[in-house]
Amino acid sequence: MAQEHLVVQGATCQCNFGTATDKLKVLSQQKEYANDQNSAFKLIANTKDLGTTFEKNTFGSCSKQNNRVCTAVVSEWKHYFEEVVLSNGGKILLENSKATCPIGGPECIRIVLHGQSAELSKQNFKNAQPAVANALNPAVDLKEMDQPEEDIEGLIFQ
Rank of each mutant, 00 (worst) to 15 (best):
N57G: 09
T47P: 03
A40S: 09
K98R: 12
P138M: 08
G89H: 00
T47A: 12
L136A: 08
A118P: 03
V84A: 14
L136G: 06
K48M: 13
A133D: 01
D49S: 07
N46P: 04
T58C: 09
G89K: 03
N66W: 12
K126P: 00
I92G: 01
T47G: 07
G90M: 04
A128S: 07
E95C: 14
N96F: 14
S61Y: 12
F41I: 15
V112D: 04
K78A: 14
A131N: 01
K98S: 12
S61V: 09
I44K: 03
L142Q: 05
A135L: 06
K98M: 12
L94N: 05
T52S: 14
V132W: 00
A139F: 08
V85E: 11
Q37L: 14
C70K: 00
F54A: 02
N67Y: 13
P138F: 09
V73N: 06
S61A: 15
Q37T: 13
N96V: 06
S39N: 15
T47V: 08
L113S: 07
K122V: 11
V85Q: 02
D49R: 09
Q123H: 09
F59S: 07
H79L: 09
I92K: 00
N66V: 11
L93R: 02
H114V: 02
S87V: 06
F125I: 11
N66S: 15
A45F: 06
I109A: 02
V73M: 05
Q65P: 02
F54T: 00
Q123S: 12
A128V: 12
L50E: 08
F125M: 08
K126I: 11
S75T: 10
S39R: 10
L43S: 06
I103R: 00
L50K: 09
F81H: 01
